[in-house]
Simulated scan of single mutants.
Amino acid sequence: MTHGSESALSVSPRRRAPQVSYRNAASPDVLNEPGTLAVFGFGAGVPAHDDPRWMAIALECLDAPAPLEVWQVEGQVTHGSEGDLRWSAGDGWLFAAIELDERAHGGPRDTAELAYRQLREFVDRRPERHVQRIWNYLGAINQGEGDGERYKLFCDGRAAGMGHFFNEGFPAATAIGHHTDAHTLQIYLLACDRPGVRVENPRQVSAWRYPRQYGRTPPSFARAMSLPSQDVLAISGTAAVVGHSSAHEDDLDAQLDETLANLEALLASAGMPAGFDTRSPLKAYVRHAIDAPRVLDFLQTHLPGVPVLMLHGDVCRSELLVEIDGWRYA
């Protein structure tokens, strides 16, 4: 879902990136604030809203109380819905989301294909057609063997639904398994009316070049995306992968060290200063809830002051215990 070339950044004016923050606030109050593009609540206890900008994410928060994640832009925001798809737009930015029940659409592969086809067709009609970042949450992500693993079936469907829309390169992305209804697929994205610049990690094989052992269809994402504002890096789900192989099986501390090394490599590749700060919110997806205190202690020690949202979620490889994504504001 990205059209045009990266060289367009040299002639296009800069676009101020959405401000992403974690807030302990009531969702109606945040939705009423000027410039609110999207608001996310986490876990089973979040309230329901019919506002298209609101999304209840099927991942339990390991913090209490669970904050909201808020995206805000400058200028007026419009919003609407088309069937299962909902959206909002403002200041050249687009939020779009879809949630489907696999039981109604033929299982994980066919549901992913349908979801991506609907998102592709919608975004292709919009001026904000350059997709920067996508999040994918599906149940029981590691269930199944070989090519029948649910994540691999999702990858097959995702590629089919994308068609040729990402021929010029993939956006940044995350795919995590949630622990609620195994049949629920949630996908949401951030797009812009101008292209970003894809960033890869020299320590890792690009995901779309993974060998056959990882499934019929390799994962379709860039390791990060430098947004059109040129001062914000949207970081994909990052874990202890070196080359294309998982590292440090069953060793949480070593996986955290490796993940942090990968994050720093991405910053260097993007030409950004090392480290994260109070304006750079991250998410940590932790496979085993019992590990959350160790993960939090590690992050507070190595990334002091950085806002981190701790979520109970399964990484797409069963041997990986933690994954981190987020934003780096220059």
Rank of each mutant, 00 (worst) to 15 (best):
I57T: 07
D251N: 15
T259Y: 07
V46N: 09
F221K: 14
E145V: 15
V46H: 01
W327I: 03
N142G: 11
V205D: 10
P34L: 15
L85G: 07
S220Q: 14
G271L: 05
A268I: 07
F221C: 07
S88Y: 02
V123I: 14
G275N: 01
G313Y: 02
R287D: 12
A159M: 07
E99C: 09
L153Q: 11
A160T: 00
A173M: 09
G305H: 03
E258Q: 13
H244I: 08
G107H: 06
G313T: 06
D325G: 03
D156I: 09
S7V: 10
Y22Q: 07
Y137P: 00
D277Y: 11
Q72I: 04
R133T: 04
S280G: 04
A159I: 01
T180E: 07
V46P: 02
K152R: 14
P281Q: 12
H183L: 00
P65W: 14
C155N: 11
A25S: 14
D251M: 05
S206I: 14
P281W: 07
Y214R: 06
V131R: 11
R109D: 13
R14W: 03
Q204K: 15
D231L: 02
S226Q: 08
M162Y: 13
R150N: 10
L100D: 04
T278H: 09
G313M: 04
G144N: 01
D193Q: 01
R216I: 11
K152N: 12
V70Q: 03
Y151R: 06
C155D: 03
I98Y: 06
Y151V: 15
F95M: 10
Q255S: 09
T217L: 12
L303I: 11
E145F: 14
L311V: 07
S12E: 12
N24I: 09
F154N: 05
E82G: 00
G45C: 06
P28S: 02
C316H: 07
V123F: 07
D193V: 06
L309P: 01
Q300V: 03
P52L: 09
V20F: 06
I324E: 05
V315H: 14
E168Q: 15
F221M: 10
A64Y: 01
N142S: 05
G196R: 09
A89C: 11
